[in-house]
Design a protein around this nucleic acid. Structure first.
Lengths: 336, 336
DNA sequence: CTGAAAGCGCTTACAG
DNA sequence: CTGAAAGCGCTTACAG
């Protein structure tokens, strides 16, 4: 491998000078002609800087970790793209870690990233009460939360306004004449699951309906299988609901399956609303009415917030809350 | 930060000895009691090895890059999971790069990864004739191709048997009485697009049908929009096809849209077959008949092949070809 | 504007 | 089995 030393010898300067000439930030300390000479020598020899050595010395890697809970959930690719794009503009690269919602895997991946001396971390995996976050808060590494947040976390974050999103969904159903509206809630250990459930209760109040405990089921995970289980239970109570608000699209997919299994047609017999507007949700049978969250923007904002934490560690924390939008499709109709 | 030197002082040994005691591979060179003493000192001080320093010294990072052409295509998450899982077992971490099929972006991401001194590279982005591959072949870094391959590439690879997959799709349509079968071909610059097109011609021959040039359209990208364009053209020729084999599910989704736009019903008016069996394809209206590729296994195999290249650079190259499987769903029916 | 030198935190032949 | 020392390839105060 060609080292800086060899470039320096070729250019007839000291390695320190060669280093300065080749670095954007220190280039101005060197005479223009010298810079040119070093450049030429570097090109001639095919020199490529050894980032490992540089990072070792400077303690900066220009890499940031991104922890994703479930790479199979199409919700995350746009978030990741947003993060990547805003970081790339500053010369950072995103290292993706996939936890599959498994704590053990998460620990392994996080340690793997931390051990690689990343400059920062974007977490899409926060729990409402999260020991991991408390631990990270004690370390000097900048952390930003995206999509999910935690309670009293003390990090910057980019998330969506679930109160507004759920209210729009419930109001839509109310306008269609529904009153027996059920909720397939997400995991209450996650801010999204918990926040949407609270928002549901509040939105039902707005509608003048009390939330019937019979008509709420809690999914253990944001998965199709849990959606099936919860919806099957809801549809077999004495006075079954005429509409279901699912806490996300995966759960809504499960609702579709359960409704079909119960011999019910959507939206004729039961209306279903999802949340997130994952890719392809407009392609379902029937197309899913859901709440669209600007995922790319969420990611882009998270990346910006992280850069801010890295470059200005003492700046105040920020929470960006983006506004979701109800997308009405074929899975919701007038109440029977 | 606690350094090895401090641990050594605490344990009353030389830093070199402390290093040996803390490394699995060199641990056997040190007396058991000493190992214990160093361990205890490290724990007491909360020592964590500085991987950056270690990597700088050893020139190994235990990181491998994974280049993905389109993170929005649900085909890739399972591949990535497979790669991650097989690498994790050996202590490696996967750094994901997302090229979005843009050469410029690809170059930037690849340089970013290469500059970070990765130990190997898994490419899901190979073109049939790929300058980038020729360049990589000249460097010492181990490379493995997954899903797509290149011509005369000289790398190990894990891919699927497109001839078998397409033949199964065409045979299925033939058995349903179709003879005017069209093909929405993928980009011919990619092994998948090219291979499936060639396989289509061959499979049609098997069926005793000559391929009608009128009934083949070439998509510029594996995208829904290109699927729409190609299918719209196919459906407006003089003698339109009764069935379409799309080179992947994205294109098939476009075929759905085009059929709808032409006032045709699937499968009553036109049968559609996809390729890949991405997640949720069983949820479409109608559910998509497609060819399932074992994507997780593809990724897992690619990871194994890469480890083999890393640990045994002189071992012979290997190509693993996995067998796909036709999944018959509602989008295919008897010919009119 | 440039040189000389120290040093980042490890690992690893080389002695003993 | 352990110590002493060199060195990986850079960057960066410090002189001049």
């Amino acid at each position: 491998m060609v080292t800086l030393k060899e470039v320096a010898r070729e250019a007839g300067v000291h390695p320190g000078t060669a280093s300065r000439a080749l670095n954007r930030t220190t280039q101005s300390l060197v005479a223009a002609v010298t810079v040119e000479r070093v450049r030429a020598a570097a090109d001639a020899l095919g020199y490529r800087v050894d980032y490992l050595a540089r990072s070792f010395k400077t303690r900066r890697t220009f890499s940031v970790g991104v922890l994703i809970p479930d790479i199979n959930n199409p919700l995350f690719p746009p978030i990741v793209r947003g993060i990547e794009d805003s970081l790339a503009a500053a010369g950072y690269i995103a290292l993706l870690g996939n936890t599959e919602n498994e704590p053990e895997r998460e620990k392994r991946v996080l340690d793997g990233l931390l051990g690689r001396s990343i400059d920062g971390l974007v977490l899409a995996t926060a729990q409402r009460r999260d020991g991991k976050l408390a631990e990270l808060a004690r370390q000097p590494i900048p952390v930003v939360l995206v999509n999910r947040v935690a309670e009293d976390h003390g990090f910057s974050s980019a998330s969506a306004d679930d109160v507004a999103g759920v209210r729009a969904a419930v109001a839509h159903l109310g306008a269609l004449g529904h009153t027996r509206i059920a909720h397939v809630a997400g995991p209450q250990s996650l801010s999204t699951g918990y926040g949407r459930f609270q928002a549901f209760i509040s939105a039902m109040g707005h509608l003048g309906c009390e939330t019937d405990n019979q008509l709420v089921r809690f999914a253990a995970t944001f998965s199709i299988t849990e959606g099936i289980r919860c919806a099957a239970e809801l549809l077999s109570v004495d006075m079954p609901p005429t509409a279901i608000v699912a806490a996300n699209d995966m759960l809504a997919l499960g609702c579709y399956t359960a409704a079909e299994g119960a011999g019910l047609r959507c939206p004729d017999d039961v209306s279903i609303v999802g949340y997130n507007d994952m890719p392809f949700m407009d392609r379902l049978s029937p197309p899913l009415t859901t709440v669209r969250i600007p995922h790319y923007d969420l990611g882009a904002r998270a990346g910006e917030l992280l850069l801010e934490r890295i470059n200005h560690p003492d700046a105040p924390l920020r929470s960006t809350i983006l506004v979701p939008q109800l997308v009405v499709r074929g899975s919701t109709g007038r109440a029977r």
